[in-house]
Computed example of a mutant assay.
Amino acid sequence: MDLYLKGKKAVVTASSKGLGRAIAEQLAAEGADLLLCSRDEQAVCDVAAQLGQKYGVSATGMAVDLSSPEQIGWLVQQAADRFGRVDALVCNAGGPPSGSFLSLDEEAWLHAIQVNLMSVVRLVKGFHPLMKEQGGRIVTIASSSVKVPIPGLVLSNTLRTGIVGLMKTLSVEWGPGGILLNTVCPGRISTDRLVELDTAKASRDQVSVEEIRESMVKDIPLGRYGEPEELAATAAFLLSPRNSYMTGSVFYVDGGSIKAI
């Protein structure tokens, strides 16, 4: 299926690896021009160069700290200068630290709020002027924890749920202007973040990482962890003109692990 993304202008945050990189590659494969960012400038510039050469699209990488409103503002200005408009925006950020409620101090909460919630607020507000003329698509990457909270991830459980509320609210406010906003929630997708979480849980439970993975897979009807490319395919569709009537929704890419209706 042609997603009609050829020549569209897309911005993907936290795209030097993992889910962000996979989404960026899927968009490039469909012909979209890219502006990518990450805290690791060398890594994201390398990804941009690889995708640009592989798919024949314009792709630029730059260093941006999503906890900084000034740097997000700079990213928006770069997109305005390079593209003049933005058709697709992916709000993605690394997950906050694991920990129980009583183990986390206020500094951890404030930092996570800046990176994982306020970054989305600032990104969607900043890019709105570049979408309002022609409409656009926004996808935020959250977590299956918005449906079923994950033990030991109180920061993620709290902030990801806030993102869903924001996207739902904006889908109503911005729908008349042709801007569609959706949330994609990964389950257990094979990324560096998941290795970190499995390792932390193995340490807490005093078992091996392999035992943790085996126990987790038992709860996944498809019997395996997902691949970043599988989530990226869903995100690319939602970011494309092919998605013309879905907004304010939450999409779980979890192999069926969420059992709730």
Rank of each mutant, 00 (worst) to 15 (best):
Met1Asp: 14
Val11Trp: 05
Pro228Asn: 08
Asn92Val: 05
Gly226Asp: 11
Val47Pro: 05
Arg242Thr: 13
Val120Gly: 00
Gly177Ala: 14
Val253Ile: 08
Gln26Asn: 11
Asp205Cys: 09
Met118Leu: 14
Val11Thr: 08
Asp105Arg: 04
Val64Leu: 04
Ala10Ile: 06
Asn243Phe: 07
Val120Lys: 00
Ser190Gln: 11
Val154Gln: 06
Ile220His: 00
Ser68His: 05
Pro149Met: 07
Trp109Gln: 09
Ile258Trp: 02
Ser16Val: 08
Ser171Gly: 07
Gln42Trp: 08
Asp192Pro: 04
Lys54Pro: 02
Val64Pro: 05
Leu102Cys: 08
Ile189Arg: 06
Gln77Val: 10
Ala79Arg: 12
Arg39Gln: 09
Val12Trp: 03
Gly73Gln: 12
Pro228His: 04
Gly95Asn: 15
Leu117Lys: 00
Glu30Asp: 14
Ala14Asn: 11
Glu25Ala: 12
Ile113His: 03
Arg160Phe: 04
Pro176Gly: 13
Ser58Gln: 15
Ile261Asn: 04
Lys132Ser: 10
Ile150Arg: 03
Gly162Trp: 00
Gly7Val: 02
Gly56Glu: 05
Gly56Ala: 05
Arg160Cys: 11
Ser100Phe: 10
Asp2Gln: 09
Ala232Lys: 06
Ile258Met: 06
Ala80Tyr: 07
Ser16Phe: 00
Leu89Asn: 07
Ser257Phe: 02
Arg213Trp: 08
Leu34Val: 05
Lys168Asn: 12
Leu180Cys: 02
Gln71Leu: 07
Ala233Ile: 00
Gly126Lys: 04
Val90Ala: 01
Ser208Glu: 12
Leu170Gln: 02
Arg160Asp: 15
Val253Ser: 11
Gly94Ser: 10
Met1Asn: 15
Gln78Trp: 01
Ala108Leu: 09
Ile163Gln: 11
Pro96Cys: 02
Lys218Ala: 12
Cys45Ala: 14
Thr199Lys: 12
Met131Lys: 06
Glu70Asp: 14
Val76Cys: 05
Val253Ala: 09
Ile163Met: 04
Gly248Asn: 03
Asp65Phe: 01
Ile72Lys: 04
Lys218Ile: 12
Trp174Leu: 15
Cys37Tyr: 07
Leu110Arg: 12
Thr247Gln: 10
Leu117Ile: 02
Gln71Tyr: 06
Pro97Ser: 12
Tyr225Asp: 10
Pro228Lys: 03
Ser144Gly: 09
Arg188Cys: 07
Gly165Glu: 08
Leu36Thr: 07
Arg213Val: 08
Glu173His: 06
Ser38Gly: 09
Ala48Ser: 02
